[in-house]
Design a protein around this nucleic acid. Structure first.
Length: 356
DNA sequence: AATACGGGGGC
DNA sequence: GCCCCAGTATT
């Protein structure tokens, strides 16, 4: 005997769900997995073109496993959360080596791959193999919190456990994949974060939040986000038509992406005069010429605001202080993945040299 | 249990 | 500006 919620959901799915996406109904676990990694904390509209680009470039997991890191990162550029890309590559290679290119078909094996947690393991195993695991993503938490009137914060251990258990109890065991797809579509199309379509909703008579008029207050989140500001001064050092770049390795934003010579300042500065000692030490006596100084580029991340400024310098001799950097021809820069603040700067016409 | 990790779109 | 998005890994 199915719960009322499940019955109504499947009824809505059959009669009224028109949502179409490139990966919907897909049975190839590789393609499902790729779509799920791309969509982690990412809106469908944002991930859509990336998915199509990746499938075209890497039709199978073996294609992806054999690709070089830089190419894959370049294709991921702009999508954010770059550890997903690193883990994507690592998983593909693990499937190639440990599974001979055949995607693992159990929840536990899938979850053991890097970058795959409970949500993604449930999604891939249920969509591809009809494994009986309920997905719990932001959509599901919102739908269930409202329908059952649950005020337990979703970002706590207790809340996660509660929603996971509830979701699993509502799962339709005949076709877990269909059910999982339906509840996420329902959350995205009807039970939306803002302006949900309650008056047209087939569940509204039984929906606790609708009855109690608490729809806009659910789900509850506990943690407030703390923001910090950072000031990045990028020195673009040109030598014989080549620029110095380096891959970020620190446990920080943009790990594995490339950047120019960075001086991070603890506070804002209107002009770059305070950066001169850094520059002097960098060139260490080598003659240099300041070619241009950009405006300040602002990039808003979830937890940080980046203020970026770019100073172009030309030198006539290579700089020994930059031995751990690569000298890349300007035309080759398109092969390297950079953070948004840098690609935005590079995409704009050069600003006229301004002195300070 | 808390924190870090991007970027974009809607309001 | 603030919130949220087909979450996961690390500390």
């Amino acid at each position: 005997m199915k719960p009322d919620f499940t019955r109504r959901l499947l009824q809505w799915n059959k009669n009224s769900n028109n949502r179409a996406m490139p990966w919907k109904g897909e049975k190839d676990p590789y393609k499902i997995w790729l779509s799920e990694i791309i969509l982690q904390q990412t809106r469908v509209e944002q991930g859509w073109s990336y998915y199509e680009k990746f499938i075209a470039a890497f039709p199978t997991v073996m294609h992806l496993a054999k690709a070089n890191d830089e190419k894959v990162f370049k294709m991921w550029e702009g999508l954010g959360y770059y550890s997903r890309c690193k883990n994507l590559i690592a998983s593909a290679r693990k499937i190639a080596s440990d599974y001979k290119g055949k995607f693992p078909d159990t929840y536990d094996e899938i979850k053991a791959l890097p970058g795959i947690g409970p949500y993604t393991a449930a999604a891939v195993s249920s969509f591809a193999f009809n494994a009986p695991h309920a997905v719990v993503d932001g959509n599901v938490q919102r739908v269930l919190a409202r329908y059952f009137g649950i005020a337990t914060p979703i970002d706590t251990t207790a809340g996660k456990k509660e929603f996971q258990t509830l979701a699993q109890s509502l799962l339709q065991l005949d076709e877990p994949g269909t059910y999982n797809q339906a509840i996420m579509d329902f959350g995205a199309v009807i039970c939306k974060p803002q302006n949900p379509l309650c008056s047209d909703c087939v569940q509204n008579k039984a929906c606790e939040a609708f009855k109690q008029q608490t729809v806009t207050q659910l789900p509850v989140k506990q943690k407030a986000i703390i923001r910090r500001e950072r000031w990045f001064y990028y020195f673009i050092i040109e030598y014989k038509g080549k620029w110095y770049i380096k891959q970020r390795t620190a446990k920080d934003i943009w790990e594995n992406l490339f950047e120019f010579v960075l001086f991070e300042s603890p506070k804002a500065a209107d002009d770059i005069t305070p950066r001169l000692p850094f520059l002097k030490k960098l060139v260490n006596g080598t003659p240099f010429q300041i070619e241009s100084i950009s405006r300040i580029y602002r990039q808003q991340l979830t937890h940080q605001t980046i203020h970026g400024r770019f100073i172009k310098i030309r030198v006539q001799e290579a700089l020994p202080t930059l031995s751990n950097y690569s000298l890349i021809d300007k035309k080759q820069l398109v092969n390297y993945a950079f953070p948004r603040v840098i690609t935005t700067f590079l995409g704009e016409p050069a600003s006229p040299a301004q002195l300070f």
